[in-house]
Nucleic acid binder design. Structure first.
Lengths: 342, 342
DNA sequence: GTGAAAGCGCTAACAA
DNA sequence: TTGTTAGCGCTTTCAC
């Protein structure tokens, strides 16, 4: 077991400076794309950098600039199953795509219990990241407070449950549900059920609220028998739909609060011998805005992910740069997508 | 738009020292749990730390210690769908559980294309992390070379395709497949099929090899008609099983290379009117080693995740501490689990 | 356009 | 046990 603790010491700025025949300051200027460098000096430095395979030491740089050029996406969720949530995957993909052209790095942090939340909080406060995008899917979450106290720039992905003063970006969930329900109403349906999301998630609550709102506005009294709570999964959607069919066999339409659940609901409907959409019309809410979901409902409300991810980083950067107003937030419009086969 | 770029300047070690009436060095010692501090000094410092809400500046510390106390789990995978892979989720969960008791942080990095791989490589080389655990599920991956050249400690999660000199931890995939196939052989079956994983993933290749090996050892010639390639998903497993049933209706057993695929295979078998296990016996390979999978096969080979995650961090830490032999690797034993209903 | 010099906040000898 | 001192590698005034 030889002692290998002597890792190939990476070259420093000084060594580059010596090799290039200039001062440290000049090398630094070249590294940082300062315009105040002569072409000759620039070339000499670049050659030296290439020869030495020089990579700036981030710690040294961050110590003085107070920037790490990395932001964290924190996933605050006790359930490991979130990873399989298409919405989560889409956000990750969208964020890294947004940052691909920049020199910002994205790291994912997970926090499954209070200890891990503390750890994430510490990580952020210690200065590892410039800011945090937080996805906390369920109601209670201490992280916003931890980070706020520490003054770490923060944007929530999803409207917070309490009306707290914090920046966030969310889709217009209730608006989307209203549109979906109005679409069903517009085809003459009146016994419109809903398979809700989990009611301890804001997206579940808001979509349910939208369903109620649209019905009420149309003079239809929301019937508790027409409401079944799902869990955003296909299996849960199927179960909820079966429940609804047992409780209210006369339903003629259903707004399903997520696309996987809609796929499950469709299976339940077909298993029960109901025809779709002739007999029962289905509108789903597509978190991932993916067209090629397995067994999709005929019409869906698309989550505006393409709008959300750039906004998340933009709002965060504004805070980091210190040019953000208090708790600047945004709601992105959702829109109905009618499938060809509808 | 007021200028808020003046974030609440966090207190420094000096301020703590002044408040506690000691020197910086003493504060540093207390922070780092040095035993060479008097109880009184320790208390005074701790009080000051609490009062000032002092949090050490990681950049300054790392600059001198050359440690960041964070390791990265890099997910090198073009397909976003990996997130829904139970194996991946289990590894993440296992790693953060392993690190929960330590002061090491875990960050997830994703790399979907060459640009993102470069970015991840840069991130690591710049010194943001002490080491990298790399999950590269498909064959070609430039990251090991990038990191190796830069001297960044690296452990692969999964045996590399080429026989390269690099540390890795993997399950005994071929051994597990052998055990599974032998189990089927032991019940007197001879027409044993297999639903393989993707053959551009090492786990797929190794499990397929184990199936061949067990058959050959038992004097049974592997029949190409009894092989169908799946993609580790339930839908893929169902498709592959249907293919097998069409091609070789006389099969009397099947080794399915993942649990989700096994669930799909079971559905295909039932849809075809086959009885399980009387008619066709099924053994699945359970990557997540989760007992409560939907619709599980009767008998499974369990992936030894509980062994793998501690080993991954252990091997990585040994490299970081410079006490690792060249490319130290480990294979973890898999084992057959017979379900009660079997 | 370039260099000299002063730190950023911390740790780690080395003295005391 | 404690304090003093010298950096870690970089950016950034400020002179030149």
């Amino acid at each position: 077991m030889t002692d290998m603790s002597t890792r190939p010491a990476s070259p420093t700025l000084d060594e580059v400076a010596v090799l290039a025949g200039v001062s440290r300051a000049t090398v630094s200027r070249v590294i940082n794309d300062s315009p105040r460098v002569s072409p000759e000096a620039r070339e000499a430095v670049q050659a030296a950098v290439a020869e030495l395979r020089y990579v700036p030491n981030r710690m040294a740089r961050s110590l003085v600039t107070r920037r790490t050029d990395t932001i964290a996406l924190v996933l605050n969720e006790p359930n490991t199953q979130v990873f399989s949530d298409p919405f989560f995957a889409s956000i990750v993909r969208g964020l890294s795509a947004t940052l691909a052209d920049t020199d910002l790095n994205l790291v994912l942090l997970t926090a499954r219990d209070e200890r891990e939340q503390e750890k994430v909080g510490r990580y952020a406060r210690q200065g590892h990241v410039d800011g945090v995008i937080l996805m906390s899917l369920h109601s209670q979450d201490p992280l916003p407070d931890i980070l706020a106290v520490a003054g770490v720039p923060l944007v929530l992905c999803g409207r917070p449950f309490d009306g707290r003063e914090v920046a966030y970006v969310d889709a217009d969930n209730s608006g989307g549900a209203v549109v979906a329900t109005e679409h069903l109403l517009g085809t003459g349906r009146r016994r419109i059920a809903t398979v809700t999301g989990p009611l301890d998630m804001i997206a579940g609550v808001d979509r349910y609220a939208g369903w109620r709102q649209a019905l009420t506005a149309a003079g239809v009294e929301p019937d508790p028998a027409l409401v079944a709570e799902g869990d955003f999964t296909e299996a849960g959607g199927r179960r909820a739909m079966e429940e609804l069919l047992a409780r209210a066999p006369d339903l003629d339409g259903v707004f399903v609060a997520s696309d996987p659940m809609a796929a499950g609901a469709l299976r339940a409907l077909r298993a029960a011998g109901r025809r779709v959409p002739e007999d029962v019309a289905v509108v789903g809410f597509d978190d991932a805005a993916v067209a090629e979901t397995t067994d999709p409902p005929l019409t869906t409300v698309a989550q505006p992910l393409a709008d959300m991810t750039p906004l998340l980083t933009e709002l965060l950067m504004r805070q980091i740069d210190g040019v953000a107003g208090p708790a600047e937030s945004r709601i992105c419009q959702t829109h109905l997508v009618r499938r060809a086969s509808a």
